[in-house]
Write a protein that binds this DNA or RNA. Structure first.
Length: 464
DNA sequence: CAACAAAGCGCG
DNA sequence: AAAGCGCGCTTTGTTG
């Protein structure tokens, strides 16, 4: 990939950005190495415990009978043979190379205690091998110094490695706790603080496509896109709406649709989420039961080869998708066509932040790349500016990391209010003044751990 | 033995 | 017509 800043704006951003990021790398993140040792033991114990259940299982006996000395619990290929050849489950999904797909989604459909324990063990193995050991390997005098690269990605985002600081577990609370407890501030009078841009990719998308409906959604705090789509997707009223339904819709419908997914996959995922998250209406009716009462007879085949059948969830979501792109966000929809056509015509496009993308891109990449990149550039610009101000005021707080739309700091307790003022000024005011193309407000959230406590313990705090 | 591809999974 | 955007890391299994 060739780095192509096409304006002074773009060039300066990455010039200053590299300096800011390397200073951040040098600062490093303090690691509780004693905790890390305990966590590893705890994690190994958990894995051993799960392994005992696996070895005692009938399924393992069959596995062992087939593979003998070659039996390897880490081999999903072997597990696939056990499940599909010996136990006669039917394999519905294959990988691109034609082998049976054995990922988490497939395994969830196999209702066996053995498989449930297997998946659980795999998650703890990932925690141990990738994270606990990965961190331990790179720790130096009690500090971690992950790299933050600005010359890697197609989209002009950053990346991070050795270890990757941008994929530390957070979604499963148990695993998140195990890993994030290792990330601590530099002293008992200091605290880990994280500032996040809220929904910045959607906001930046609105700046590209100028869709009036989308602009209103991201500008008016009263309006709630995920809530509105939640009511439509799951056919619930305002009164029946819950936070969990909204959450399922945000991750199962809105983001996938923005990234270019289509209704067959979306419907399936939204349907799975009902049982996964045990969704029910605010008055306590299980969501599948509720949908049945609304005339939905089932999910539907969701098979690309087959026509959609009326009264299925698949059919319903197809209608929601049509409405989404052809009525609600029709300007966004038109922008995608125009943007792609301009790219096909010229062979490149330029981002609002001054970078040129001239690689081979399909339609989805072409409309997603500029948004993803520019959203990160908002973070990067802010980070540079915040770091400058911290120096200017001789403050003792540092920036220690960055995750695409958030920055993580090690803050001296008595500086917290000032740090918050600086970040708020930079991200919500200076940034939108600096780039004229930002035509929507930028919202940033602040989360802080108590003094001396780990990254895991961060909690939202109000700006006041 | 090293190098590589495929599959899977962690995050935004 | 195809059918989710971007990364990094680990393990398995193959190849030479």
């Amino acid at each position: 990939m060739i780095l192509q800043p096409v304006t002074h704006e773009g060039y300066n951003l990455f010039h200053d950005g590299m300096q800011a990021l390397s200073e951040m790398e040098a600062n490093g993140i303090r690691i509780d190495t004693e905790y890390l040792g305990r966590a590893k033991e705890e994690c190994k114990a958990k894995i051993a415990e799960l392994k005992v259940s696996l070895l005692a299982d009938d399924v393992y006996t069959k596995w062992r009978r087939r593979f003998g000395q070659d039996t390897n619990l880490g081999s999903r290929e072997q597990l696939g043979e056990v499940i599909f050849d010996i136990l006669k489950y039917s394999c519905k999904v294959h990988t691109p190379s034609g082998r049976p797909s054995m990922d988490d989604e497939v395994l969830q459909t196999i209702k066996l205690l053995f498989v449930k324990n297997y998946m659980e063990a795999e998650r703890w193995k990932k925690a141990l091998n990738t994270y606990l050991r990965g961190i331990e390997r790179e720790v130096c005098n009690g500090y971690l110094h992950p790299f933050f690269n600005l010359h890697i990605t197609m989209t002009y985002r950053s990346s991070s490695d050795s270890p990757n600081f941008q994929n530390i577990p957070i979604r499963r609370p148990e695993i998140a706790k195990l890993i994030r407890m290792a990330f601590i501030p530099r002293g008992s009078n200091r605290q880990i603080v994280e500032f996040d841009f809220k929904g910045i990719e959607v906001s930046v998308a609105a700046c590209y496509n100028h869709d009036l409906v989308l602009i209103e959604y991201v500008s008016d705090p009263i309006k709630d896109m995920h809530g509105d789509m939640g009511r439509q997707c799951y056919i619930v009223t305002r009164k029946q709406m819950t936070k969990l339904i909204r959450y399922a819709t945000k991750n199962g419908f809105v983001f996938p649709e923005f990234y270019g997914n289509w209704y067959k996959a979306v419907a399936k995922d939204l349907w799975t989420k009902i049982t996964e998250l045990k969704l029910e209406t605010a008055d306590g009716v299980p969501l599948k039961e509720h949908l049945r009462k609304q005339g939905i007879r089932g999910l539907g085949k969701c098979d690309p080869e087959e026509d959609v059948v009326p009264d299925t969830f698949e059919y319903h979501i197809k209608e929601v998708e049509d409405d989404f792109w052809h009525r609600r966000f029709k300007i966004y929809d038109q922008w995608k066509r125009d943007w792609n056509n301009a790219y096909l015509e010229k062979g490149y496009f330029d981002t609002l932040t001054g970078f040129r993308c001239s690689a081979m891109m399909d339609r989805k990449q072409c409309v997603n790349f500029p948004i993803q990149g520019s959203a990160f550039h908002c973070l990067l610009w802010s980070l540079i500016r915040v770091q400058k101000l911290l120096h200017k005021y001789n403050m003792k707080s540092f920036i220690i990391g960055q995750i695409h739309d958030s920055m993580i700091m090690d803050v001296l307790q008595r500086e917290l209010k000032d740090v918050m003022d600086i970040v708020r000024q930079v991200t919500m005011i200076d940034l939108t003044k600096h780039w004229k193309w930002i035509i929507v407000p930028m919202r940033v959230e602040c989360e802080a751990a108590p003094p001396g406590r780990s990254w895991y313990e961060k909690k939202e705090i109000e700006w006041e």
